[in-house]
Design a protein around this nucleic acid. Structure first.
Lengths: 226, 226
DNA sequence: CATTTAAAATGAACGCAATTCACTTTTCTA
DNA sequence: TAGAAAAGTGAATTGCGTTCATTTTAAATG
């Protein structure tokens, strides 16, 4: 436990700077931009598919390269290594998710509605993007020192949508003021994520995931006590 | 997403039967029992320590063997492979945790107190067993198809302590009857686990984890709405 | 258009670490 | 105490991530 830091921390710092490097290399060539971007995208999409179906641990770089229609070595021109590929998926696929969530929440006027929207939108996303959901929820946990640690930019951004809504509701008088935003955002995200993960992992998907949204919202808003 | 099953499912079924095999091999020799059990235990403890400090992915079987004071090959006499070692840790270390939790909850009379106890005890365990907590929360997620899927015996047992308390409270009239136990157990566990994981991963542990227990309990029982 | 130069792409070769197995040591049995 | 069986060993095997010398493709130059 002493050096939790050692495993991903070191690796991932190098990796995230390498992500920059890859992008720089990309934008340097003026005309190649399109072609390179296309190839990078192809590899990234291939990786999402292969990681989701075989799992990060069992996925071979060769599989990803074949799926993307390139040579193994080519993947290393766009991504530092297997870890960086995973991190890049997270960083780049998370952005549209956050943006859409922010927009969805912005359409609502009350904080209560915003909280309800977060829950419903998250579950709907998981329902519609099973591959990405599986990666974000399951495969990615192993590098959670990076994602969950205080450095994880995108993830924190996502959680902060929750705490912002809470604070808004506390100011407007909708919510109790005693609740600490940084605790609450974890309670809510944890609850929703657990249900989503369980759904993602379970094989016979009998009910629609988003149908649980109201029940979660109710517990969060009003509790279970009579 | 099509074949989530492929990755761990296949492997882990073999593995869990191999766990049996190892145990059989163990109990066959009458007098060797102690010695073998001791060695198995040594390897298991070494693995917990090494996995926790370096991470499953970066931990070498050689490190574990050295830490346990045996040859690399010996580890393969007691465990099928690296994965099985991890699974065995989960299966075997989870049992005392579940038992202690069950006992703690049994000392309380009202369902409300039982829920509060679950939250507090879980956080206290994480606080006191950082190595195991780190494994259960972070390193182990990567094999969550096994743990979270409907086959995961021990984990389900743990969650069922929550749903049992909920049902008890619904019968006694403490809790609303509209809440579905199998949803609620996930909401509560997810919330507590998210906070615990975040704590485990964060480096400067400024406050005591168990100090969050009351706030979580309050949100779960009474919600955030005024 | 031919030629030079640079960028991209390739896949065989390298190295590390999980796993195996032929062999040694220890323990049990008679 | 001899012989058999069980445990234990670590060098050899194997698989896979990563590298790099080479080839292919594209851009620049005259």
């Amino acid at each position: 436990m002493h050096n939790l830091v050692d495993f991903p921390a070191r690796i991932f710092y190098i990796e995230s700077s390498s992500l920059q490097a890859a992008r720089v290399r990309l934008t340097q060539g003026e005309v190649r931009k399109d072609m390179s971007a296309g190839k990078r995208e192809k590899i990234l999409k291939a990786a999402i598919s292969v990681f989701a179906s075989r799992g990060f641990y069992n996925a071979k770089m060769e599989d990803i390269a074949r799926e993307a229609g390139v040579a193994v070595g080519t993947t290393y021109l766009y991504f530092e290594n297997k870890d960086d590929l995973m991190i890049s998926i997270f960083e780049e696929e998370m952005e549209p998710l956050i943006n859409r969530m922010r927009e969805n929440m912005a359409t609502k006027t009350t904080a209560t509605e915003k909280i309800a929207t977060f829950i419903h939108s998250h579950l709907t996303f998981v329902e519609r993007n099973p591959d990405m959901a599986h990666l974000l929820e399951v495969e990615m946990r192993f590098c959670s020192q990076f994602i969950l640690g205080y450095h994880g930019g995108r993830f924190k951004e996502y959680l902060d949508l929750i705490s912002a809504a809470l604070v808004e509701g506390q100011i407007s008088g909708e919510f109790k003021t005693a609740i600490h935003p940084s605790i609450f955002k974890q309670i809510l995200f944890g609850a929703v994520d657990q249900i989503a993960t369980n759904y993602t992992v379970s094989k016979p998907k009998r009910t629609l995931l988003s149908s649980f949204a109201d029940e979660i919202t109710s517990v969060i808003l009003h509790g279970i006590a009579k």
